[in-house]
Amino acid sequence: MAPLADAANGIPDHAETRLIDIAGHPVPVVKGGLYDRYRSNPPLAVIQAEAPGLDLGWFKGLEKTQVDMGFASYSPNFYYQNSRITAVYTADLERLRALMPTAVLARTQPLQVWPGRGLVALTAYTYDYCDNDSYNEIALSIITNKPGTSNFGPLTLAGQSLSKDFWGYVLKLPVNTELARVRGVVGYNLPKWLTPINRREEADAVSYDIVDAQTGKVDVVMRGRKLEGLSHEPELVTNSFTNLDHLGRLAYGYATSRQTAHAASLKTDSMVLVLGDGSLSRYIRELQLGRMVKYEYVPAFQSALYAPKPL
């Protein structure tokens, strides 16, 4: 029997763990958890038996295929029960361009919403139940045009909003389990690192405390309002990212989400972002964030994340 997991790894203290190998990395997972048993390919009948209240109808129309992502896995990866908060801010356009590799910039660029200003999205995810167990994740991404298409700034953003088909370049992606970190780094070449991310449920808000991995102190706090007037009309949204694979080749990946409870606000006080003195706070400050232009509160969604492909 493996020792009890460290809470800093996002695995409950009381859970038994075992080490598995992913591309040469020893990774602690919950013993008897979904990933331990099925390696990203659990039968939907098992999910239904373990979570009988979940509606799995959408997943029944999606087909998994075996893929080599630097390790054997299945695509898409299923996320059965999740929530998120997202804030979109303006940021310094030249700084955003400087953070993107030249090869990526040749095919896609940050959207310019007005002279000298681009957009970034800051999202806090909670994956309560998914193929790779459960974890929290924070995504900081530049909003871009679709590779190979014209970039008309606000018009392109409006088009993406209407089609619910968004593109971006991921800058930072901390997670709170080693399983999520290794899968993301090896399989998707994404900028993930392991650090505690604590979600707090309040009467009128959802808060995330992001700990600095070096100091062990809370560095970034995101506090998003629980918006009223939620829509329960299912809505499909696709989020795609462009990056370089491990061989330096252009690649892209995407996730399609089925949002079953969602609301948005343009009020700037819908999200409170508190920055500290750690590395992530310093990085965010260098982006020279301006006003928040949109906030999204999505307390219920499902998602399918597809393995990356050459662009």
Rank of each mutant, 00 (worst) to 15 (best):
154 P>R: 14
258 R>S: 04
183 R>L: 09
244 L>K: 03
7 A>C: 10
284 I>M: 15
284 I>L: 15
122 L>W: 04
276 G>S: 15
307 A>K: 10
22 I>P: 03
257 S>E: 12
301 F>A: 10
7 A>N: 07
173 L>G: 04
243 N>A: 12
116 G>F: 12
247 L>R: 13
301 F>M: 14
9 N>T: 13
69 M>I: 14
23 A>T: 09
95 R>H: 04
220 V>D: 10
4 L>V: 08
138 I>P: 01
239 N>H: 05
127 Y>F: 12
155 L>T: 15
211 V>D: 02
45 A>I: 03
170 V>N: 07
60 K>S: 11
243 N>E: 09
41 N>R: 14
6 D>P: 06
67 V>N: 00
255 A>C: 06
142 I>G: 02
159 G>Q: 14
103 A>N: 04
211 V>Y: 08
254 Y>T: 13
57 G>E: 11
225 R>F: 02
274 V>C: 02
284 I>P: 10
130 C>G: 06
148 G>S: 04
31 K>T: 07
77 N>Y: 03
162 L>Y: 05
265 S>A: 08
290 G>I: 00
201 E>Y: 11
83 S>C: 12
290 G>A: 01
303 S>D: 12
236 L>I: 09
310 P>S: 12
226 K>P: 01
274 V>H: 02
178 E>A: 06
218 V>R: 11
209 D>M: 11
51 A>G: 00
147 P>R: 07
161 S>L: 14
113 V>W: 07
18 R>K: 15
24 G>Y: 08
131 D>F: 03
278 G>Y: 11
67 V>S: 00
144 T>L: 08
33 G>L: 06
210 I>R: 07
43 P>S: 15
246 H>S: 14
255 A>L: 04
36 D>M: 09
33 G>N: 05
43 P>F: 12
254 Y>S: 12
83 S>N: 13
7 A>S: 13
183 R>T: 13
208 Y>Q: 03
82 N>F: 02
111 L>H: 12
164 K>N: 12
80 Y>D: 01
170 V>G: 05
78 F>M: 05
248 G>P: 10
235 E>Y: 02
70 G>P: 11
246 H>E: 13
217 K>I: 09
104 V>L: 03
64 K>V: 05
32 G>M: 10
260 T>A: 03
255 A>D: 08
99 L>I: 00
243 N>K: 12
56 L>Q: 01
134 S>E: 01
53 G>K: 02
67 V>R: 03
263 A>Q: 15
146 K>R: 15
243 N>Y: 10
55 D>W: 03
310 P>C: 11
228 E>K: 12
140 L>N: 02
51 A>F: 00
244 L>Y: 01
72 A>Y: 08
269 D>C: 08
